[in-house]
């Protein structure tokens, strides 16, 4: 791996792990939001959507404070692993999960909502347990919501800048992701390298969005 492409590789790894964690955490959250009649639902929805409207620097600032070894969470992580959450890859994954949460949860939630209770009640009457109903009815019917959520989370994490800069800084091989590398290239007037990386990111993002819009027009991201 050449030094020039290392930031791209790091971004891809970050996006991959973030998407994986989001699949595990976002799915139950989206499911709960789509089915609940609880009064706190709008509160949870608003919190989930916050990263859509907050400047990444604001989010990054709070996360930096939360992750610092002096805070409860950051301190706990240090006592557990021996190193700090800030300026680490793990810290970046955690921050990205929060930053990209709405991109996973919203398409999935609206996919589950459009499946509705109807097919699930039918499945229940045919003897399917709640977990069985989720995996054999709700999930296959919401497949396009999954695809949208996964692709958007991945692409959004790939293009991340502000949060990474605040939480991770600019450590080559550890936290220097592609967008930060581009920023650095521009700062140092290395426009050729900046062009290269920007073109790669641009091309990739376009391809991903084209895929999403082609595959599926049904579960759009709703910005509130």
């Amino acid at each position: 791996m050449s030094a020039e492409l290392a930031p791209l590789w790091l971004s891809l790894r970050l996006a991959f792990f973030t998407t994986l964690v989001l699949l595990a955490l976002g799915t139950p959250l989206a499911w709960w939001l789509s089915m609940t009649r609880a009064k706190v639902k709008p509160v949870i929805e608003a919190v989930t959507a916050l990263p859509l409207v907050l400047p990444p620097t604001v989010l990054g600032f709070y996360l930096l404070i939360l992750f610092s070894p002096n805070s409860a969470l950051g301190g706990f992580f240090v006592s557990l692993t021996g190193h700090s959450l800030t300026f680490s890859f793990t810290g970046l994954v955690l921050a990205s999960v929060i930053y990209s949460l709405p991109f996973m949860v919203q398409p999935l939630q609206s996919a589950f909502e459009s499946v509705g209770r109807g097919p699930l009640e039918a499945a229940a009457s045919l003897g399917a347990s709640p977990l069985d109903r989720f995996f054999s009815v709700a999930s296959p019917l919401a497949l396009r919501g999954y695809i949208t959520g996964l692709v958007l989370s991945f692409a959004h994490t790939l293009g991340e800048f502000g949060v990474v800069l605040m939480v991770g800084g600019n450590i080559p091989g550890r936290t220097k992701v592609i967008s930060i590398a581009i920023y650095e290239n521009v700062e140092t007037l290395d426009y050729a390298q900046a062009h290269w990386l920007s073109a790669i990111l641009m091309g990739f993002s376009f391809a991903v969005l084209l895929l999403v819009f082609t595959v599926n027009r049904r579960f759009p991201i709703r910005v509130i």
């Binding site: 009640e121 039918a122 229940a124 009457s125």
Partner: peptide, 16 residues
């Protein structure tokens, strides 16, 4: 409901 063994035919069929 999944333990009651009650068949339910809905107006809108609800096939998967």
């Amino acid at each position: 409901p999944h333990l009651r063994q009650v068949g339910y035919v809905f107006q809108d069929a609800r096939l998967f």
